[in-house]
């Protein structure tokens, strides 16, 4: 996995999956490109148009709280988000991101501001804030997660190994 470069779009603590994609839309269709137009609409109307491919969603504590909807990471991916970066994550969202191949980075995001240019290197566990000239060390991805992500998500992992290949013998 090579390093990704993009702009930071910052959000606060407890950004829940209802906010990523509202219930009033997500039950209507399975077309993620269509749903992507409504990403973050309830808290930041027009967000879809702000995103350039490869940009990052940067948040505080407990990113992805609430609903188990896998539409949340899928919609972020479809909208062009390259990775989600937060101080901490809610557990179902964290798993869902990895399962669908959206990289997650757990790092101290307090110094990152809207529009900062970031370089994210998942494999090395490093986030470089190019705008601020600061390098942040991310919490390493658990080995299980790294394995699923590098296989290209859970579906690809299962196909490749013919089942789960995650337990240490």
């Amino acid at each position: 996995m090579s390093a990704m470069k993009g702009k930071a779009h910052t959000f606060g603590d407890n950004l829940n999956t209802d906010y990523v994609i509202s219930g009033k839309y997500k039950f209507k269709t399975l077309d993620m490109n269509e749903l992507a137009k409504h990403v973050m609409e309830d808290i930041r109307p027009g967000f879809y148009d702000e995103i350039k491919k490869g940009d990052f969603v940067v948040a505080g504590e407990n990113l992805g709280a609430g609903s188990s909807r896998e539409q949340a990471p899928l919609v972020l991916k479809a909208a062009g988000i390259g990775a989600v970066v937060a101080r901490s994550f809610a557990r179902i969202f964290y798993r869902n991101c990895i399962n669908v191949g959206l990289p997650v980075v757990e790092v101290d995001t307090s110094g990152i501001e809207e529009g900062d240019e970031l370089q994210v290197d998942i494999a090395a566990g490093v986030v470089k804030n190019i705008t601020k000239g600061v390098t942040l060390e991310a919490r390493p991805l658990p080995p299980v997660m790294m394995k699923i992500l590098s296989d290209g998500g859970l579906a690809e992992h299962l196909k490749k190994h013919g089942g789960f290949a995650l337990e240490e013998e």
């Binding site: 896998e70 798993r95 299980v144 998500g153 299962l158």
Partner: peptide
């Protein structure tokens, strides 16, 4: 609670991690 991919994996394998 789990996401749809975790659930699908459990439907296929009967298991979850």
């Amino acid at each position: 609670g789990v996401g749809s991919t975790d659930l699908a994996a459990a439907l296929v394998t009967g298991k979850i991690w």
